[in-house]
Simulated assay, not measured.
Amino acid sequence: MASILQGEIAAEIVAALEAERVPYALTLVRQETGGDPWDPIIVDVPYDCRGWRDDYSLDERDGTLIQQDDVRVFIIASSLAIEPTTADTISLAGVSHSIVSVKRDPAGALWEVQARR
């Protein structure tokens, strides 16, 4: 059963964020295997998306689960063709970050990503 927050409400959230010019271009990178099955190669495949970076509060930074340099990244779900995973990386202003955790908001409008340099 889908959440009652999904659908129209998600679209309204995205429209409001875009109207305020909050999101900007981000790139999620996934390593995929290609080439010959007997001699595979690993290729970085970029997925363009839109979102923004936010900082964790001092209270949230425990030094273990959320480290000092970790950042919170919000990705507009409808702007990304794939579901992000902890095997992916995300590029913020040209700086690559590993993805530590991923969750989706109740409306299904955003992916919330914990990223680490």
Rank of each mutant, 00 (worst) to 15 (best):
G7H: 06
I41W: 13
A107N: 14
R72N: 06
I75V: 15
V71A: 06
V73Y: 03
E8G: 11
R50D: 03
A16D: 14
Q67K: 09
A81M: 12
Q31W: 09
P40G: 06
D88L: 02
A81E: 15
Q31P: 11
Q114S: 14
L92K: 06
R53Q: 14
A107H: 08
R116K: 07
V102C: 10
A15W: 01
I9L: 12
Q6W: 10
E18N: 12
L92S: 03
C49S: 07
G94T: 15
V22K: 13
A2L: 12
R30F: 02
C49Y: 01
C49H: 01
V22Q: 13
A93I: 13
K103C: 11
S91Y: 13
E32L: 11
D55G: 13
Y47D: 13
L92F: 05
A115T: 14
A10L: 09
G63K: 00
D48N: 11
G51M: 02
R53Y: 04
A115W: 05
G63Y: 00
F74R: 02
E8C: 09
H97D: 01
D70H: 06
L28Q: 05
I82D: 14
T33W: 12
L5H: 10
W111G: 05
V71Q: 09
T27A: 06
Y24P: 12
L65T: 12
G94S: 11
W111A: 06
L5D: 11
